[in-house]
Design a protein around this nucleic acid. Sequence first.
DNA 1: GTGTAGATGAGAATCATTCTTATTTTCCAT
DNA 2: ATGGAAAATAAGAATGATTCTCATCTACAC
Lengths: 146, 146
Amino acid sequence: MSAAENQKLKQVLREHELKATTQRIALLKLLDATNEHFDAEEIYLELIKKQKNVSRATVYRSLEALVEQSLVARLDFGDGRMRFERSKGEDEHHDHLICEDCGKVIEFFNPEMEAQQLAVCEENDFTPSTHTMHIFGTCSDCKSVK
Amino acid sequence: MSAAENQKLKQVLREHELKATTQRIALLKLLDATNEHFDAEEIYLELIKKQKNVSRATVYRSLEALVEQSLVARLDFGDGRMRFERSKGEDEHHDHLICEDCGKVIEFFNPEMEAQQLAVCEENDFTPSTHTMHIFGTCSDCKSVK
DNA sequence: GTGTAGATGAGAATCATTCTTATTTTCCAT
DNA sequence: ATGGAAAATAAGAATGATTCTCATCTACAC
């Protein structure tokens, strides 16, 4: 169905010193094909639904390896489980607005905010590696319903 | 040892429509007396160490009630457990720099960053309630050791 | 094609947190 | 001060997400 895509993902994995297993390829392909923020269980169920032979343990282990290689980003919305999204690269960093009513996630990127973050780090002689900025509240749709 | 302090906390609890139980008073007193960011288990162990009769379940339930009343703030550093700190009030909001080496937490408050956050919310017709801004990295102490 | 380091599957184990139920406390009204 | 209803607690079972164990399997360098 997508031999070319498979080859590309295989190469991506190898470039990151990860063996190109069918499970990892399927997982990356799944995340590539969606804009949603799946949790591990959802990813597992989606792969099962697609007739992919995979176990929960492998989903968790693969995600861990992919996150370590920055091929996938781990998101913590504070509700007790981690979400994951395909990360295209450092340059595509973004933060999130999270609707507490419907769970919708709006992504945003604000250069000035990022600059302020760097300024704070400098003030404190702190070397940043990553950051999370999540704003919780009510989205426009849910607001109008009220 | 601190009858006056107990009375004050008792009053604070009642003002927030919470029954002033010995467990809740002890918990608040503990958080008042530290600048650390304890997790539920640490709070439980500290109270036990202080000869306070309390159960884990009560720690969790009390924290939930106190967070709901904004007497305590719940912090999520993304390591699988929630931390808690006494919140003196809305005006004392702050964000965190978290050292990935030693676990130290540096608090900061940057008005311009807060302003940017509000701007992003407006752009997206989003009504914010709370937010978390955590910057992970290496603190000056750990940097110099390397 | 082979060997081996690394990956996987299945389910047990773990860890933080929540729930259950019987008992105990708080605190309002007396 | 005292009785009682509503709320809170203790103890441990239950849950849900995640990690671990170990026997088996697979990718891939040779």
